[in-house]
Design a protein around this nucleic acid. Sequence first.
DNA 1: CCGATTAAATTTGAAAATCAAATTAAATCG
DNA 2: CGATTTAATTTGATTTTCAAATTTAATCGG
Lengths: 397, 397
Amino acid sequence: MSVNQREIGRRRLLAEIRAQKSIPRIDLAERTGISRATVTTITAELLREGLIEEEQRDSPDKDTRRGRPTVNLRIRGAARLIAGAKISNRAISLVLLDFEGAHLADHEVALDKSVFAPAELAAILGAQLDALARKVGCGRADVSGFGIGIAGIVDAPRGFVHWSPSLDARNVEFADVIGRQLSVPTYVDNDANLVAVAEKTFGLGQGHSDFIVVTIESGVGMGIYIGDEIYRGTRGCGAEFGHTKVHLDGALCRCGQRGCLEAYVADYALLREAMIASGDHAGMVVDKVLSAAEAGDPVAKSIVDRAGRMFAMGLANLVNIFDPELIILAGEQMLSSHLYAEEVIEAMRGSIVQIDKAPPEVVIHKWDNLMWARGGAAYALDKVQERALADMVDYAG
Amino acid sequence: MSVNQREIGRRRLLAEIRAQKSIPRIDLAERTGISRATVTTITAELLREGLIEEEQRDSPDKDTRRGRPTVNLRIRGAARLIAGAKISNRAISLVLLDFEGAHLADHEVALDKSVFAPAELAAILGAQLDALARKVGCGRADVSGFGIGIAGIVDAPRGFVHWSPSLDARNVEFADVIGRQLSVPTYVDNDANLVAVAEKTFGLGQGHSDFIVVTIESGVGMGIYIGDEIYRGTRGCGAEFGHTKVHLDGALCRCGQRGCLEAYVADYALLREAMIASGDHAGMVVDKVLSAAEAGDPVAKSIVDRAGRMFAMGLANLVNIFDPELIILAGEQMLSSHLYAEEVIEAMRGSIVQIDKAPPEVVIHKWDNLMWARGGAAYALDKVQERALADMVDYAG
DNA sequence: CCGATTAAATTTGAAAATCAAATTAAATCG
DNA sequence: CGATTTAATTTGATTTTCAAATTTAATCGG
């Protein structure tokens, strides 16, 4: 019943094949501790199911050893088609991956407004998904899973959106709405969580079981991996790093509360201060503040410096609470380069509990705007694989 | 190899028996999904091993139904003897439990100083453990596991103490030192973590898979359960709640850094402020500040109020990051009652992300000073049970 | 007091799954 | 081209689980 022994083996082997990209059976047995006999049996099942494939050894010179040569196994890309999307302020970007995670196509569309009714947004997503699938000569029906990232508070296991700046309603069963309307299995998560999934699947989080991803756009987001699983809290809405408080009764945040980290480091926070200082209430943009600070303007410098120190303090709090092995600062726009500066990281290191052990590694990962959508796809990929494995249960050679 | 199927079943059943205290086989099958046949087989093994026992039905009137009556199974208390200890400032308290977790004896001793060499402290612990065991007519050799809580930064899986206010050396393999010196399997963890273990095993955390325990003595400590496991971070030293920063370049903390939560809410923080305000540099005690505040003294009130608001802010940050279902505020001395006041909890609720879902439950748990030691014992109990199960592998009827 | 009834626990026998060992397959070496 | 080497598969025994049948231990009703 539920999860039988064989299914555990299949899961373990498929995960290992995915992690290693390409690996012979004997190494699978070695790495997983499953006997060679069982590896043969299980991989035969996975082959028949079409989830994996044997790799052609196109480089016979490479294998110069004696004995029967190894046959590498890998995920069969053609097995499934996976789509991912990110809903941004006035745009949607989509990406289409195969079952191996390889990029097949992408697609972007600008929107004429930023807030939508759920069904309206679902219709747009459907049309764009069709357009995306058409690029590889497929239809929507060929897509096995669709993962969508959206800003706001999301209970991912239920696909339930408590609140999002992109929706005109609260408490929407958004995954259900889209899934029913498009007839494609749909999964919705907070966009920052999906960046963490993307980092784990394709990026710098590969091979790490515990790490934190912090993203900075206009808001501050966070995703946490603990024990190879993304941590979402008990209401599905933890990891609200941007709204942790860094000052008692501090600056007003757009969430309505005071002293949120976001109210000190987001672009609108910098702008607000710059406006106050200059008296100039129009035409002020963040770039100008940053370049003024760099040029040595003392007011601009103090504004930017404080943002950096607040950010360092927030990061230090994360480290003191989680003690992660790795922190990934991720972002597409380098508007936040001042927050990722070495001084900021150094200030963070100075604010964590001091022990005779290296502080967590901090890396900066700058990527294109498709990374968000790829995170959505990676999330859907995981779900699709899970479903494929579950559906195999009734299979008997 | 390693964890075989049967061992999984044994673990699952033993855990369920422990959780339910007393439960018949048929309910075990029902709850675990393991077939009745297998439950019979496995419980027979556990019975033969002496880890569980059949309960005498001493109340035959209770069971008024027809049919063969159920036979309840329970953990066999006599199976093992478990000790726990808490090293406090100038005292050590110990507790002796049976394998079921029942209290057998306790013992306390005052110390003439607060900082010790590791071997010296180990010797004291050995002597007190002997005294404790003697109370139930046993010797140290009968104790299967010894769990010790100590303040400071501890890498629990290794039993390694990075730093502790009770030790005169840094980076001590403390569990090894004690274990070798006493010839008793010894486990060491941060004292706040062990309070969390105690709450999970004996207290309000029973039945909760994700919760946070915050303790306030002179310092502020925290323990986190995520997915039924205590979370310790990758270096074994996460959960340093007391040293999360609540103010940029704020008050000086005894850790040497600035703006730590502890520097605002600990007793010494209140004292410092009260001294500054009154000019009175001697004879000031925390109780006096608190009672003055309660009596309406405006200075005292502002001091205590700010501590409360800082604490609320720290708690809110925890909730925003973890989204736990439950927060347990635990402590033995009610010096911290001002921090546990309803206004403080309400302030916390006002500083967390607002969604249409209940905020986490907050409960206050006040207990005696033996709770710390019981946490140590609970930790050791878990390890001893794990060892007992592992040792059964080679067992064949 | 005794057979019918009921429900827990155990036993039985078949099915599932793993693994060590033996065998087969596919290569290189000399 | 046979010996050697190593991967992969097959074989046969063992472990483990579970559904169904059986046994056990109680109550019920007459």
